[in-house]
């Protein structure tokens, strides 16, 4: 399926020029400073969270259930009140200048929350008006066409499939032409095909200058989409990293060489290689970086040195740690 957002107002040359000016200022689109949220009853959902999200980037927020992802989004969007700390959207404080701040934000919630008896057209038009924008049937039509909802525009929401309802939520969030789009678990419970379609939609929006923040459980989704990744655990933002930097970590692989005879220690002749001996002495584990293409992985040299020392290898295998493993180990480390 091809989804084109080229006709949306955010893609106009004027919008692009405005974005260019804003980019020139170098100020982040969203600034969160020392945010705390303690709910009634004493549960602390956010602990001193500080975060900057740049214009036009896709930022993925990862974390297990109950980590604070939705609370963070809710505070930024004005749905939950912060206990302390500040949030600025394009320089506007989201409490003192809530009108300006909120006008820039589109939110797609995690739950399928729709008024069942209204039509697709009415509910999307309602969203636009609610944000104070004058009627613009052309824009609504473009959004509905882009999300392949046009044929369903006169259907009541209760008649739609789950995937369609999720698209309606995206259409509602885009109805007022936001500059920032929050997607809270956008592909939860969505089949693989629709998930890929949504990724395509998100990419096209980013290409038009919309800043996108998504929360997800799917590491694959973050890997596929994000420019930067943040990990939140028990209310603390424990990691914010460029995806490319994380991929470099991902690039580290392990080669395990199963030996004919056990060794007591790594032979001195092999000391130049990053080797570790297994506990039983029957395997040598070599760690290397696959991204260092120009320098080589060092495997050929290692194998040559092994042969020279007379160590016989009966089997070997390699494994690569995934982003998921990094995430899981982070969770465990801090448990």
């Amino acid at each position: 399926m091809t989804i084109s957002f080229n006709h949306l107002p955010t893609a106009t040359p004027e919008a692009g020029a405005a974005l260019g000016e804003a980019e020139a200022t170098g100020s982040p689109m969203i600034q969160v400073e020392q945010l705390d949220k303690v709910f009634e009853g004493g549960f602390q959902a956010l602990k001193n969270v500080s975060l900057e999200i740049q214009r036009g980037e896709i930022f993925a927020l990862l974390g297990p259930n109950g980590a604070g992802k939705t609370t963070l989004i809710s505070v930024i969007c004005g749905l939950v009140r912060a206990s302390s700390g500040t949030v600025r959207v394009d320089g506007h404080d989201n409490v003192a200048d809530y009108r300006q701040a909120r006008a820039m934000i589109g939110l797609v919630p995690q739950e399928l929350t729709n008024e069942a008896f209204t039509t697709v057209w009415d509910t999307v038009s309602f969203s636009r008006g609610l944000f104070g924008k004058p009627r613009n049937p052309v824009h609504i039509e473009n959004v509905l066409r882009a999300l392949t909802l046009w044929e369903k525009r006169n259907n009541r929401l209760l008649e739609l499939s789950g995937g369609m309802k999720r698209r309606v939520l995206i259409a509602k969030a885009l109805a007022h032409e936001p500059k920032v789009l929050f997607l809270d678990e956008p592909t939860a419970g969505v089949d693989v095909e629709l998930r890929r379609e949504m990724w395509e939609v998100v990419r096209q929006l980013r290409d038009q200058g919309v800043t996108i923040i998504l929360t997800t459980h799917y590491i694959e989704e973050a890997e596929e989409m994000a420019d930067r990744i943040g990990v939140i655990l028990r209310g603390e933002l424990v990691l914010v990293e460029e995806k490319a930097a994380l991929m470099r970590q991902l690039g580290r692989k392990e080669l395990t060489l199963h030996l004919d005879h056990a060794l007591e220690q790594v032979p001195a002749a092999l000391a130049g290689h990053d080797l570790a001996l297994s506990e039983d002495g029957h395997a040598l584990v070599y760690t290397y970086d696959v991204t260092r293409q120009e320098e080589g992985t060092g495997i050929a040299g290692l194998l040559a040195d092994l042969e020279a020392t007379g160590i016989r290898v009966k089997d070997l295998h390699t494994r690569q740690s995934s982003l998921e493993e990094i995430f899981v180990s982070l969770v465990r480390e801090r448990a």
Partner: peptide
Amino acid sequence: FFPRFSGSIYEILSAPIS
């Protein structure tokens, strides 16, 4: 009550309105 019940109240509370 209905938007609260259905969850669609999020839209009203996050809109730039007083």
